[in-house]
């Protein structure tokens, strides 16, 4: 397993470089929007990756609520954290694309934009809960919040089907259409971002597991070791 990480890291770096090359040079230029349309190759795969990570968070939270396995709790935390990072990319690149195309950075009241922002806020509140609550019930409360947050994900995705919105139609499974060469580049970028997300989740999982072991060691030391006794003497 220790060898697999650097090998996957190198492969992911190569894949990300190739995906970047394809997005900037390999993909055909869109006739109406021009080069600014290439933002789509980072915006859409980031959104898909965030949705997948939120789905993983949902599954791990359900598993934790039923089986109470600490590993499931760690998976839920890690996937939410990395999902928020990808969702942040979506919320930043979207307005950068909208400014030259729509003439505005943000369309107030637009259902897709607003629901994505609400989704981001739900998962940020999940992370804030995890970070600042020291109660033993925190993982359970967070898992319940994660289940509620996951209900928002399909609403965000399908909102453009059911409501009038300025946001373009989905490129897959919806009313939109896409040039096959553009779809190819889009899927390469999604694969690259998915590999990158997997590696980040992996390293973050290792870090969180180690952190919990160290916290346990600190707790044991303060209960059993001379450190606690000495602290009592000093007082």
């Amino acid at each position: 397993m220790k060898r697999a990480f650097p090998v996957l890291g190198v492969l992911t770096a190569i894949l990300l470089s190739y995906a970047l090359y394809m997005a900037l040079i390999g993909a055909p230029t869109e006739q109406t929007m021009g080069d600014v349309q290439r933002i789509f190759y980072y915006h859409v795969p980031s959104a898909w990756t965030a949705f997948v990570l939120f789905f993983v968070n949902f599954g791990a939270s359900i598993f934790y609520l039923t089986k109470r396995r600490p590993a499931a709790d760690i998976v839920a935390l890690v996937s939410a954290e990395v999902g928020v990072v990808f969702c942040t990319v979506v919320l930043v690149t979207g307005p950068i694309w909208a400014r030259p195309v729509w003439g505005i950075w943000w369309a107030p009241g637009d259902i897709r934009l607003t629901s994505t922002l609400v989704l981001w806020l739900i998962y940020v509140s999940y992370l804030v809960l995890r970070r600042f609550s020291s109660s033993g019930q925190t993982p359970t409360l967070a898992a319940a919040l994660a289940v509620l947050g996951a209900l928002c994900v399909p609403f965000v995705y399908f909102s453009i089907w059911f409501f009038r919105t300025q946001h373009p139609q989905p490129v897959m499974g919806g009313g939109g259409s896409i040039d096959p060469r553009m779809l190819h580049v889009l899927l390469i970028n999604w694969l690259a971002f998915s590999c990158f997300a997997f590696l980040v989740c992996w390293s973050r999982y290792r870090l969180e597991s180690l952190q919990r072991e160290v916290d346990q060691a600190h707790a044991m030391e303060s209960l059993l070791g001379p450190r606690g006794t000495m602290r009592g003497n000093v007082r």
């Binding site: 970047l20 900037l24 929007m33 021009g34 080069d35 600014v36 290439r38 933002i39 980072y42 915006h43 980031s46 990319v89 930043v92 690149t93 950068i96 694309w97 400014r99 030259p100």
Partner: peptide, 13 residues
């Protein structure tokens, strides 16, 4: 001008 926004989006990512 589209290139400026393209660069901004990729750099921000």
């Amino acid at each position: 001008s589209g290139n400026r926004y393209l660069f901004a989006a990729y750099a921000a990512t």
